[in-house]
């Protein structure tokens, strides 16, 4: 029997039962799951075993079997790098900015859209705001330059026209994180609403009608009906997001980085790209990747525990 998972009492342990009858009873479910399981085994788990090269001095010629083991050497090198703390600070800084400002943005936007009664307007706005998702970061870099650069930027041209001094935005360390967050919001907020709108679409309109009759105001309806409908999705996305806190979107940061802002712009991803990919140090970059993953696992497991404790939707 399927139970709504948000109910805490659903977590009762099932008594030990013989395995085979259960497997046989659910054979169709296993058939449904099989292609997906195969996918994960073949394209994820088999390649993941290669992560052991993080503990080796890997050489393609010798292969995994023949490459010498070096234990935690790559990790030690990484942690003892004088820039480690700078990289960590920048990575966490950018991620937290994203978590605080970028993560809630599509939720708020979805709520706003849901309140629009005028169907044509709603649809038009919806179709327009999701377009930036399709633009590549290279192009967005170009557009940002076009808007905010000191010599050509529209924004600074406007300031000059108003007899004001031009503002240095793109090579200003103080504005860098904020600019990245703003770019991310601009690009992905509309696209992000899709998943929340899909969740809202599941709400029974009768609930709203009943609430209106009960005299609930607009914000109370939002709080008590719309938001709970999105809760599953919000919690899952939030927990997964925590797992990727060490990722910062390499392309965006790499493109926006310049000499004046490296102090605040160097993150793990850009470092790995330079060191691991361009310099061909596969073992070293794998070790850094492993470090990121382990931090992610700890955060996800922790967040999941916390979510369970507070009776919220959890991942597993």
């Amino acid at each position: 029997m399927r139970k709504r998972s948000s109910k805490p009492e659903a977590k009762l342990r099932e008594p030990k039962r013989p395995l085979w009858p259960d497997l046989k009873r659910d054979r169709y479910l296993y058939v449904l799951a099989l292609p997906g399981i195969l996918f994960f085994v073949i394209f994820k788990y088999i390649p993941i075993t290669n992560l052991v090269i993080g503990f080796q001095d890997y050489s393609p010629y010798l292969g995994i079997a023949g490459s010498p083991w070096v234990g935690f050497e790559h990790f030690t090198r990484f942690f003892s790098n004088p820039d480690f703390w700078m990289l960590l600070r920048n990575t966490l800084g950018i991620s937290l900015m994203n978590l605080v400002f970028f993560f809630p943005a599509p939720i708020i936007l979805a709520l706003m859209l849901n309140e629009v009664r005028h169907q044509l307007m709603k649809r038009t706005v919806q179709s327009l705001i999701y377009i930036p998702h399709f633009l590549s970061w290279v192009l967005i870099y170009g557009l940002t330059y076009l808007m905010f650069s000191q010599s050509e930027g529209l924004f600074n041209k406007l300031l000059t026209a108003l007899d004001k001094d031009t503002v240095d935005i793109l090579s200003n360390p103080k504005l860098f994180w904020g600019m990245l967050t703003a770019q991310s919001i601009w690009k992905e907020v509309g696209w992000g609403t899709i998943i929340f709108l899909a969740a809202i679409a599941g709400v029974d309109p009768q609930q709203y009608e009943a609430a209106v009759i009960d005299g609930a105001g607009r914000f109370r309806r939002m709080w008590h009906i719309t938001l709970p409908a999105m809760r599953n999705v919000i919690m899952i996305l939030l927990i997964l997001r925590l797992g990727t806190i060490m990722d910062t979107g390499f392309e965006q940061v790499y493109l926006m980085m310049n000499a004046a802002v490296t102090e605040v712009a160097e993150v793990f991803d850009t470092y790995v790209y330079r060191v691991g990919i361009r310099q061909g140090e596969f073992s070293y970059s794998t070790a850094i990747g492993l470090f990121k993953s382990i931090v992610g696992v700890i955060l996800v497991v922790g967040a999941n525990r916390a979510a369970k404790r507070f009776g919220q939707e959890s991942l597993y």
Binding site: D83, N258, A259, A260, R274, V275, R278, Q279
Partner: peptide, 19 residues
């Protein structure tokens, strides 16, 4: 192993001084 990092820091420093 080490030179690209050093070289990048130097070129960032140079650029900062220039501008």
């Amino acid at each position: 192993k080490y030179y690209p990092e050093i070289s990048k820091k130097v070129s960032d420093m140079r650029t900062k001084v220039i501008i």
